[in-house]
């Protein structure tokens, strides 16, 4: 495995929540992890094992209290807030369990939000936004508000939104947690297609069937990676030219 193909490289990462004295919580206790570009990683583990904490650090929403995190070769573990924001906006797409769309904006406007913060003109990117909406099957719902959509449709808007800045990777924290199994399947199929198109995916789940879609599954326990299962070698996947 060539070293520079690792898009995520984590070294001895610790996360301590300071609550004062004995009450401190050590949510991550020195985790090491490499994730290759284009791979599909699932994170599993019991509640409170540190999965969300880990994903927040991977998504540059949070900084480790110790250890190093290299994202695309760049050390982001000590970055100032503004640069972290930029890294989030440019390199990472988020899909949340509770969709997290902005209620007062339409489908199209929600998809456009990440463009705004990169100083991009939404008019010049209108074509690609429409295409993304079509990709997630919402080409005819552009001017609806989130409250007028089903859960599955909302999550598909979130998928489209995560892609608009063409990020390096997509992070999803229990994306199907609020969906029934059928709509969940549809969203997961969508994520599969993104991975096939070359996007790196990191996904947190409690569901074995969801995890089985990933190349690789890591199981966390008490803030450490307990064991790791490789479903299939990443390279065995049919190569798809990314568009």
């Amino acid at each position: 495995m060539p070293a520079d193909s690792a898009i995520i490289r984590i070294r001895d990462v610790e996360k301590r929540y300071v609550l004062g004295g004995e009450a401190d919580v050590l949510a991550l206790r020195g985790v090491n992890l490499d994730v290759e570009a284009g791979s599909y990683l699932a994170i599993m583990g019991p509640s409170g094992s540190g999965k969300s904490t880990m994903l927040n650090i991977l998504g540059c929403l949070d900084r480790p209290t110790a250890g190093r995190y290299f994202l695309g070769g760049e050390d982001v573990s000590r970055m100032p807030d503004d640069q972290l924001s930029e890294a989030r906006g440019l390199k990472i797409g988020f899909i949340f369990q509770s969709y997290n769309l902005i209620a007062q904006l339409t489908v199209l406007e929600n998809i456009q939000v990440p463009l705004l913060y990169q100083g991009k003109d939404v008019r010049t990117h209108l074509e690609s936004c429409l295409e993304l909406a079509k990709l997630v099957g919402l080409g005819d719902r552009l001017h609806h508000r989130p409250s007028q959509l089903s859960g599955g449709q909302q999550q598909r808007v979130a998928v489209a939104r995560s892609l608009v800045n063409n990020p390096l990777m997509i992070l999803a924290d229990e994306p199907t947690g609020n969906l029934d199994s059928k709509t969940g399947q549809e969203v997961l199929d969508l994520i599969d297609r993104l991975n096939e198109a070359g996007k790196t995916i990191v996904l947190v789940t409690h569901d074995d069937r969801v995890a089985s879609r990933a190349d690789r599954v890591i199981h966390m326990k008490d803030g450490l990676i307990d064991r790791e299962v490789v479903n299939r070698p990443m390279r065995a996947r049919p190569a798809v030219s990314s568009s």
């Binding site: 929403l61 807030d81 503004d82 989030r88 906006g89 997290n100 902005i102 209620a103 990440p114 913060y117």
Partner: peptide, 16 residues
């Protein structure tokens, strides 16, 4: 607050 969190996750700086 929630909206602020979403915008921050999508790349908004404090200044924004």
């Amino acid at each position: 607050t929630r909206e602020i969190g979403i915008r921050r996750a999508l790349g908004a700086k404090r200044r924004d």
